[in-house]
Amino acid sequence: MLRIPCPWCGLRDEKEFAYGGEAHVERPQGGASDAAWADYLYFRRNVKGIAYERWQHARGCRQWFNVARDNVTHEIRATYRNDQAKPQLDDPERRL
């Protein structure tokens, strides 16, 4: 069970949250190519290590926010609001 510190409500159980996929995915400008739209809609880094993700406190304050999470150890490295900058964390580079 993950315990996630919501930036508004503090530490709560995983069951209260909904996962919203990778964070910091930028929407292409109008007139972009089919390939650019496919990349935006479907293609992901799917990184092994520190994943920057969008989560929603769905059964709490219902706010969306970002989580930096090590998806190998399940350790929550940071949570931050949407208007805050992406934190720079040392990735243990646990590749392959």
């Binding site: 996929g21 990349d39 992901r44 880094r45 092994k48 998806n71 392959l96």
Partner: peptide, 18 residues
């Protein structure tokens, strides 16, 4: 589950979530 990680080494991005 490791397709994205390996494909990245070949310069490919995949539409997958592990």
């Amino acid at each position: 589950g490791h397709s994205s990680v390996l494909a990245e080494h070949a310069g490919l991005r995949l539409p997958l979530i592990s």
